[in-house]
Design a protein around this nucleic acid. Sequence first.
DNA 1: TCGAACCCTCACATTGATGTGAGGGTCAAC
DNA 2: GTTGACCCTCACATCAATGTGAGGGTTCGA
Lengths: 120, 120
Amino acid sequence: MRIGELSERTGASRRLLRYYEEQGLIVAERCANGYRSYDEPTVDRVLQVRGLLDAGLPTRIIKQILPCLDKPRTIHFEHATPEMIATLEQELSGMSERISCLTRNRDAIAEYLEAVRVDR
Amino acid sequence: MRIGELSERTGASRRLLRYYEEQGLIVAERCANGYRSYDEPTVDRVLQVRGLLDAGLPTRIIKQILPCLDKPRTIHFEHATPEMIATLEQELSGMSERISCLTRNRDAIAEYLEAVRVDR
DNA sequence: TCGAACCCTCACATTGATGTGAGGGTCAAC
DNA sequence: GTTGACCCTCACATCAATGTGAGGGTTCGA
């Protein structure tokens, strides 16, 4: 699949897809004419990247954790250096904090909306 | 409390606190000499703002939802315009998506860490 | 009364994620 | 063989969240 189709299927602009590649978040084959060529799993990959990005993680971190999230879940020990583990543990707790903050606030908003709806 | 103390207690730089004020996220009294003066609840407010910011919400949105999140939970109907409600509903589902994406990935990371720990 | 440790405003710099546009190939269909 | 819809690279623009520093007041204790 070429960049246009990937863009349509993921909602990410072409520019952005090239940026993700530049950041090492996705990879692209090249056709003889220089066009980028993507395989099917890249679609999910891009969606996951966008989800994480949207959740506030920087590309730098996403790049680090993506290899651990591949399916089928092969444990890539090459990535499991002590620093890597430490980074992951740190990011893990950061994500948990983020999740609870988001959840707390989402629930508060839901509660507010509920109250407003009922009360008028 | 002055800006220095608030900064220390929240972990936000002085510069950032002034920025939040500029964005309408927090308010500050002024002393006779022009110094900013904050009350106790501002500490929590700043922490909440930082949590939301870190979770990926822009100040523009945070500013809109903050009034709905005040405790004691007074329903501020002035804010409850139809557009406001629509914005909130939209933001609500966005947050839910974010939460599930974050949760999914956090769990995957936890699982990975678990596997790596056991396996070596 | 001097210095340290605060505070102020203003304004320019930076970083990360994006948009936009110029200048130019490729390719299929007409 | 030209047109339209793709693709390429490069580079400058933008926006939000921050950093940083200049230039200058206030407060307070030695």
